[in-house]
Design a protein around this nucleic acid. Structure first.
Lengths: 336, 336
DNA sequence: TTGTAAGCGTTATCAG
DNA sequence: CTGATAACGCTTACAA
C-alpha cells in the first residue's frame, strides 16, 4: 500500500507537507498542494483510517445498535427502511456505519465497550431492549447516542408521532360510524404507553365508552399473538366492529383468525394496521393503516447524531417527532 | 481511556508483558497472565482496534457491499434476511460488519479504496451491480471477496439453486396438468440466465412447446414491470394457464393486473412466485413459490469469507449452491 | 510556506 | 519468562 511517505519522497517534500496538502490545509501553497494531490492520485494513494483515527480520535464511523427481539433480524420492513435511510444519510455526510454487538472478538462484552473498541463517534439505537442495563449504560455514557422510538430522560430521541397516530385513527373510525373499537396493542414500551394513552384520550373526547375487554395485549411484529387476541375479540358476546392492530405485520395473524371465523373484511369486521409498510398497499383489500415516515426517521437520526458529534458542547437534547399520515385503504366499512 | 500502559504501571510489569498476557501468549507465566487480566478488568480496559489494526494489518471487520438497484434500500426481505444472517454469523465468529460505499468522507471513491481505507479483512457483495467496473475492480483485487447470487470467473460465490428451482417449478406445474406455462423473468443477470436455461431445459425434457410470447422480461422486485408483462400475457389470444413470476414481490404487480381483468386465482389463472419471503405465506391465497434458504445463504457467505481470510493460500475458490424447496401454496389449480 | 519530531496504542522482535 | 524498543501510518505542535 502506498503511503504518505511514498508521496513525500516522490514530491521531494516532507511527510508533514503531504499530510497538510492532502487535508487541504491553507498552510501549504496552492502549487505544492496541487502537485501533492496529483502525485497521490498517480500513485493510487488511499489513506489509512486506523492510523488517522488513532491520532485524531475521530473515526467518522457510526455504530448501529440493532437487536431484533423476535430474533428474526432485519426482516421487518419498518426497521429495514430506517436502517437503510440511516446508512444513506450517514454516507452522504461522510460517515460509515458499523453494527455494534455485545461481543469483542470472541468474548462477551458490553455494547459500550464495543463502540469504544471500534472508536465509533456515536451510536444510533434502532431496535434494542431499552430496559437492558447494558443499553442504559451505553446511553448514559459520554458516547453520543440517539434513540429511535424510545425516550430516555434528557436524551435526544427520534419518535414517530404515536399520539397523533392513534388519535387520527380513532377519529377516522368514529367518523365512519364505528363505536365499538377494539385495540390490540404491543408489549409494554414507551411507544405502547403513548399509543394507549392517546387511544383513551381520543375516545374520551368523543364520549366513547370502550369496555375493558376491547383492549388486548400482544407482541409487536409477531402475528401469532395478535391472532390469539383477535380470536378472543371475535368470540366476545358484544363483538367490536373494528380492530386496531399493533402493526401491519401483526395484522396478518388477525387476518388468519378472521378467516377461520368465516368473516369478511370489511363487510363483517373492519381492521386497521399501523406502520404503512409496503405490504399494506399490496394486500387485498388494501389495509387502512397509519403510515410512519420511516425514511424520515432514519435520516433525521443520522443527521442529529452527526450534529451532536460535531458540536457536543452546544448540542441540546431534543425530542423530534416525525409525522405520519393515515392511509385510507379498503378495510374499514362505513357504518349506517 | 485506560490503556495497556496503565495496566503495566499498576502491575509493575512492562507493556510488552501486558500485551502478551492479554493475548494469552504462552510466553507469559500463568500467574502474571491472571494478574494482568484481573487488573485490566478492574481498570475497565478496552482495547483500541485502531492501534491494533494499524500494527497487525487485521481489522476483524468485514465490508458489506449492498447497493439496491431499485434505490429503495434494505427493504426487500430476501436481502434483509441475508444481511442479518451475515451479521449474525460474522459476530459469532468474532467479526464486525461495516457497510461499504463508494465514498470516503465527502469525496467519491471506489469500493475497493473504501474497503482498504477501512482496513476490511474481506468484503461480501450482496446486491450490487455486478457489471459495474468498480465492482469488478474490487473482485479482481487481492481483497478477499464473496459474491452472492453472481458468479465471477474463478471466484467464490454463494448461489441459490436457480437451476433446481425452475426445474422443480416446471415439473410441478406439469404434474398439476399445466401445459401453457408463461415465465416472466428478471433483468439480464447470471441468475436470470440460469433460470431461463433451466426453464427451457425442463420444458424440453417434458416435450413442452413454449411459444415465445410466453416468455417476458421484467425487473426483479419491481411489481410495476411484472404487472405490465402480466397484462400482455392476459391479453394473448392463446392465454397461458399459469404464470411464473421473477419473485414474490413482483407477483404483487401481476396480482393487481389479474384483478383488473376480473380473473380469480387460481380458478381462472394460476401463479407461482420465487423467493418464499414471509409475505408469500401470509397472502391469501397462499402463494405457491420456490423458497430460497436466505438464512443459509448469508451464513455461508460469512463463513466462507472468514475461511478465505484466515487461509488465503490454501483456500480454493468454490461455488456453493444453497438448496431451496417448493412451497405448495394455493395459487396453482390442478387441471383436468 | 515547509520541515522536524513527538506521539496516538498497539504488537513484534530480539535481547536478557 | 520478561523487558526495551522499534514500528504501524498518520496528524500536529513547534521550529525554521
Amino acid at each position: 500500500m502506498v503511503k504518505i511517505k511514498d508521496i513525500a519522497e516522490k514530491c521531494e517534500v516532507s511527510i508533514a507537507t503531504v499530510s497538510k496538502a492532502l487535508n487541504r490545509s491553507h498552510e501549504i501553497s496552492e502549487k505544492t498542494t496541487q502537485h501533492v494531490i496529483r502525485v497521490a492520485n498517480e500513485l493510487g494513494y488511499i489513506a489509512n483510517s486506523n492510523a488517522r483515527s488513532l491520532k485524531t480520535n475521530r473515526s467518522y464511523n457510526l455504530g448501529l445498535l440493532y437487536v431484533d427481539k423476535s430474533e428474526s433480524g432485519l426482516e421487518h420492513e419498518y426497521f429495514s427502511v430506517i436502517l437503510n435511510s440511516i446508512k444513506k444519510e450517514a454516507e452522504s455526510l461522510g460517515y460509515d456505519v458499523t453494527f455494534i454487538s455485545n461481543k469483542i472478538g470472541n468474548s462477551r462484552n458490553s455494547y459500550l465497550s464495543h463502540s469504544r473498541y471500534r472508536g465509533c463517534d456515536g451510536v444510533i439505537l434502532v431496535s434494542a431492549n431499552f430496559k437492558d442495563p447494558e443499553v442504559i449504560n451505553l446511553v448514559e455514557s459520554d458516547m453520543p447516542t440517539i434513540t429511535i422510538d424510545h425516550l430516555y430522560n434528557n436524551r435526544t430521541a427520534i419518535l414517530s408521532d404515536n399520539t397523533k397516530g392513534l388519535g387520527e385513527i380513532v377519529n377516522y373510525l368514529y367518523n365512519q360510524g364505528h363505536r365499538k373499537i377494539a385495540f390490540i396493542h404491543g408489549e409494554d414500551t414507551t411507544v405502547t404507553k403513548e399509543r394507549l394513552a392517546s387511544f383513551h384520550h381520543a375516545c374520551q373526547q368523543l364520549n366513547l365508552e370502550i369496555p375493558e375487554e376491547y383492549i388486548k395485549e400482544a407482541l409487536y411484529h409477531l402475528p401469532k399473538y395478535s391472532g390469539l387476541a383477535t380470536r378472543e375479540l371475535l368470540e366476545l358476546e358484544n363483538r367490536p366492529t373494528v380492530i386496531i392492530f399493533p402493526d401491519d405485520y401483526s395484522y396478518m395473524g388477525g387476518l388468519t383468525e378472521i378467516e377461520k371465523h368465516s368473516l369478511k373484511i370489511p363487510e363483517d369486521i373492519s381492521v386497521v394496521g399501523y406502520d404503512g409498510i409496503y405490504l399494506s398497499r399490496i394486500l387485498r383489500p388494501i389495509l387502512t393503516t397509519y403510515v410512519q415516515d420511516s425514511e424520515a426517521i432514519g435520516k433525521m437520526a443520522a443527521l442529529k447524531l452527526i450534529q451532536m458529534i460535531n458540536k457536543p458542547k452546544t448540542f441540546i437534547a431534543e425530542q423530534i417527532v416525525i409525522n405520519g399520515h393515515l392511509q385510507e385503504g379498503q378495510t374499514v366499512k362505513k357504518i349506517r
